[in-house]
Design a protein around this nucleic acid. Structure first.
Lengths: 206, 206
DNA sequence: CTGTGTGAAGGCTTTCACAGCC
DNA sequence: GGCTGTGAAAGCCTTCACACAG
């Protein structure tokens, strides 16, 4: 497939387009121009059109794009046609909040289990999934085909935990720990660092 | 100042370097080479050196960088020498978790108040800051000099709430709502969209 | 006449290669 | 010899300009 030639940034924006299309769908809009869709996604119209050409032609000249058709194409490219199972490691404050966050399920991800160093820790609410001790990670991952993990453990143990996940077959990690994980080439990591985002903002308002 | 010529991506990486230096400091390391620091930050050594040249020369040839001195320089450039006050809007699951997240304070940000449409909603734990009704935003912001806000409200009200914040003088927004906010040029927004990060990962492991 | 698709140009970032200093 | 600082080259991404289709 031509998958490898799609620039990383384009792939990221495809998700933005997909979101915007979902809203249009909800509003029963059938057709949208690159100008309107681009605005909703916060990019320039030419960029949107260029992004789409990486994997085909979807528009009608003089008219625009069919919302449903384009949306379906994007799901296809992004690989989110099926529910993707995910585990979460580190059920502290942030991890627990993420478990209750409805956004994952809405976008096609199902957190099937959570793990924590202290699995019996008292938690204020039911989290909707079992919280298991870390030692169970290998067993659960090998019994199901899980490739993605959300990592919300403290920074000082993150690398170690990540190593264990990778050994157990995890290929993608969404890392909230404030350190850069060292991983093999076949493993992909996306970092979400809240403090860095704030720091970054603070630079621009100086 | 030469501030405007520093590329956006460089600014972002400065935060990564700053983090890595903090760990070295904690380990009582006095000097570090660009190779070692770059590895800790997940970038190439030449990139680190190039990034630093945008605002000066800090290394000693043949030796490397003084950890404390470089760290101090970065704080200076990033504008995080002082505690920066922040408000949080939307004290739902995610917002509440962020309030308890120790990472902000550690990096020099103090959440001084939280706001929610339902300020009296029963919350499982004390959040460490007062949760006030939305109507109070204007009053609090005008009485204190607050320029930054963390936005954790549902997507369907995010734009409206953002408008209010901007009107009240907010210049920087860390947005967790899954929509692209339309804001004036003088306002800066950083988006954190967890579902998009997962979606992005899922593309790369297809 | 409106709005997409796209080669070419332009701009921005990263990487290289090596001069210069300790 | 080791390691930084940096102009130049390469690579990547965005934007332009316009051909082309409905």
């Amino acid at each position: 497939m031509s998958k490898l030639v799609i620039p990383r940034k384009t792939v990221y924006r495809l998700s933005l387009y997909y979101r915007a299309l979902a809203r249009l769908k909800a509003n029963k809009v059938e057709t949208v121009s690159s100008a309107a869709l681009a605005k909703a996604a916060g990019v320039k119209p030419t960029q949107l059109r260029k992004d789409l050409t990486y994997f085909g032609q979807f528009g009608t000249r003089g008219l625009g794009y069919n919302v449903l058709a384009l949306s379906a194409q994007l799901t296809e490219v992004l690989g989110t046609t099926h529910l993707q199972p995910v585990i979460l490691v580190g059920a502290g404050h942030l991890g627990s909040a993420l478990l209750r966050y409805p956004g994952f399920a809405k976008e096609g991800f199902e957190v099937i289990a959570a793990f924590d160093a202290d699995a019996t820790r008292k938690r204020s609410r039911d989290l909707g999934v079992p919280v298991l001790p870390m030692e169970e990670i290998g067993r659960i991952l090998s019994s199901q085909r899980i490739k993605m993990a959300i990592l919300t453990v403290p920074g000082n143990v993150a690398q170690e935990v990540a190593n264990g996940l990778i050994e157990a077959g995890v290929l993608a990690i969404l890392n909230f720990a404030p350190i850069i994980l060292q991983v093999p080439d076949n493993v992909v990591v996306n970092n979400v660092d809240l403090a860095i985002e704030l720091e970054n903002l603070s630079y621009f308002i100086q």
